[in-house]
Every structure is written in structure tokens, then in C-alpha cells.
Design a protein around this nucleic acid. Sequence first.
DNA 1: CTACAAAATGACAACCCTGTCATTTAAAGT
DNA 2: ACTTTAAATGACAGGGTTGTCATTTTGTAG
Lengths: 218, 218
Amino acid sequence: MPKETFLNLSDEKRERFIEEAFREFAWYNFEAASINRIIKNLGIARGSVYQYFEDKLDLWLYLKEYAEGQKVRYIRSVRRTDFASFWDYYQALYLKGIDFDLEQPLCSQFLYRVGFKENSQEVASYLNSWKMKAQGMFTHWVSEEKAQGTFDLSLSTEIIVHFLITMSLSIAELLQNRYQVNFDRNMQQGTPLFGQNKEELTQAVTELTQLLKKALQP
Amino acid sequence: MPKETFLNLSDEKRERFIEEAFREFAWYNFEAASINRIIKNLGIARGSVYQYFEDKLDLWLYLKEYAEGQKVRYIRSVRRTDFASFWDYYQALYLKGIDFDLEQPLCSQFLYRVGFKENSQEVASYLNSWKMKAQGMFTHWVSEEKAQGTFDLSLSTEIIVHFLITMSLSIAELLQNRYQVNFDRNMQQGTPLFGQNKEELTQAVTELTQLLKKALQP
DNA sequence: CTACAAAATGACAACCCTGTCATTTAAAGT
DNA sequence: ACTTTAAATGACAGGGTTGTCATTTTGTAG
């Protein structure tokens, strides 16, 4: 939790701080991320950071919660009841994810790192419970859809969940390989992680959804 | 490339060094891995390492090539011509991968990290060309199999390749989540990454192969 | 037993990092 | 204008890292 000092900051200062912190923690994992680089980019003193947050972990946890909140806002706006089939819904969720990346690239980049690349000892326990939670949500979701006849009942819920999660995460890799999206460049420049060619992205998402459908439906 | 001094070492010494280096680089990514820890575990002097290798990167590259060579030896022993269908072949490849992990856990763990979690700037270029090479091999492979009628021709080669690679890599995650395989514990203890319950692993591989087949075949 | 070559050593420089804290500066309330 | 509270500062301690190199130890060959 941030200290009061941080919350008392002017919006401008606070947002600038968050942005620069995201830039650092999106580009380096927890261990490698450097408070020194953040303060150099911000042009503030080292001590300030420790007047805002307890320590590096406290800052990271704040950023994680902040980013999660932002993402949830996007995802929440897609409602299952608005779609006739699960697959349409799933596709819409994906596309919202791309919107999120376009509009909040640094947040998106940070979450990508946390979900994919992070493996520092110091944050391992938080990461683990995060993943467990996601797993639980997916499991609940799949169970409900199974009752609706969305999935082949001969497939175990576990493997469907694994499949869905894996594929969700892998879209990033697909875009890198197929459309030569340069994540690293986009990250350094702070441009959207997935680049700007939304039509192509939509096409990729459609193709992937079709594949999932073919694999998982009865 | 290791220096002559390293190659002149007695087999026993050299192998002990490799083992301890694998343990370190399997547990930490390039940046976080510490030469200090390696020498402490080996009980040798810091200077020795630099009489064996140019620097940390040189050591990492050696380990990577060594590990790759070991894995290739396993994979090579599975021959396409020995299987009637691609899917049987693919499954056999998977199972060989599990053997590799059982028999050479540290190697396997190191490769898992390199393929999955590594993202240090210093090794980025090597990682990239590694992935490009793998991509190329898979593409060639899929093209040939397409001619044999293995895959649904309406699916692009790129997406099939993406699918196969992603699923290959994801088996590790599946085992962690489904069978409570504790990679971290196995890594620390140097026991096989996937644990010892081969029957269950075989079952998981079968399930996954079936799913791939359903998704990709005509 | 000696002489030479190869290998091992560990103190060291140079550079990172994080978190602390007494002090200074700025802001706000009276 | 004066006092009190809040925020910013940067030198510092204590720890980590890599790579160097002159020196010592070990091994080998004559």
C-alpha cells in the first residue's frame, strides 16, 4: 500500500510517477527493475520514492493492483448475455483486450510481463495466488458453459481450462511471429504492445477462435 | 566458447562444474544468476571460472549449446517413418521429452527457463535467433505433413505452427496445474522437473495429442 | 631432483543496487 | 509575518555483482 504522501500528491505528479514506474517494471522484471532508473527519468530524489512507498515490493504490488483494475474495467464491459454463443463472447473478450493494449499500452505491457516473464523470488507467492485465482475463475466459467453444451463433455474441465488459458496468453506470441509485431520496440517507445494494425489483429483473433471452437466443441 | 583450460580439465571436474552451472542457470535467469553462488557451491575460487570461460555470457552460451545437444540426441531417436500417423509420431516425441526430463533434469530445467522465462537483454539476440530457427523447422515440418493430408488445408501453416509450438511448451504448465507438480521444488532438489509419475504424464500427453488432432486434422 | 608449464587462488577495483535519515525546502494555516 | 506541517533531498551504509591479475600451488616431463 502506498503511503499517504503518495496519495496526497497532485494528480499530475502521481500519474507521471505511475507512468514512469510502469515503464520500468514493464521492461524489466522485479529483480532487474531499478529504482535508480525511475528516479533518473523522473528527475526526483531517491528518498522521495521511499516517502511514497515502503519499498520496491510495495511499489510493485501497487502497480499490479492498479493495472489489474484497469484491465478489469475493459473486460467487465463485455457481457456474456449479449452473445448467442460462447465463441462469439470469447472473441469479443479478446478484441477488448486489444483495445486495452491500444489505449493503455504501459499497463498492458506490465501485465504481459507479470503474467508471462516474471519469475523473481520476491514476488513468487503473489504471482502464484494470482494464477490460482485466474485458474479458479476459468474453471467456474467452463463448468457453467459445459452445462450449456458449449464444450465436448468427453474433455475434462481441467484440460479445457488449460487450453483456453494457454491460447489466450499465446496470442501475443502469435502476433509477434506472424505479423512481425516488435514488442520490445513498442515497449521502449511506449506505443501499444500489439501495434496499430487492428484489422490484422482481428483476423488473427478470428482464426484462433475458430481453432479453439473446432477443438473444444462437441 | 570455453577456454582450453576448461577442456583440459578432468572429466569429473568438468562435469561437476557443468552440473552446478546448470543448477544456477536453471533456477535464475541470466541476469540474476550469480557466479558467486556457483563457486561457493563448487568450493572453487572466483578466478577459476574466468580461466574456464571468457565471461558469464560465454558460460551461458556453452550451457545452451550443451543442453540443446543433449535434447537433440533424444528427439533424433524418434523417427517419423516408424509411425503410421503424424499424431502417433508427435505423441512419441512428447514422451521422449519426458524421458529426457527424467534422465537429465537439470538440462531439462535449464532449457525450460531459456525457452520460457528468459528475457535478459544480454541474451536477447541469441534467444531470438534460436526461436526463429525453431519456427523455421516447424514450418518445414508442417508443410511436408500438409502434403500428406495430416492437416486441415483451410488452416494457414503459420497458425498450425503457432498452435503446435504453443501446445508443446504448455505441457509443462499443464502438469504443474493438473498434477500439482512442483517445478520449483524439483528444481531445487535436482529431481526431474516433471516428477516421477510417468503414467499420469503419459495420460496428459495423450489427452493433449487428441485435442491437437481434433483441432488440426481435416 | 629440477625445471617448466598449467591450473587455482583470492584480494581488488569498479560498478551496480536498496533502503535510511538528518537536513533543507516548500506549503499551508493562523 | 510566523509557525507548523508536509514533502523533497542526497549523502551514506551495507550489500551485491562481474571481471582482473599477480602470485601461489599443483602437475608433469626430463
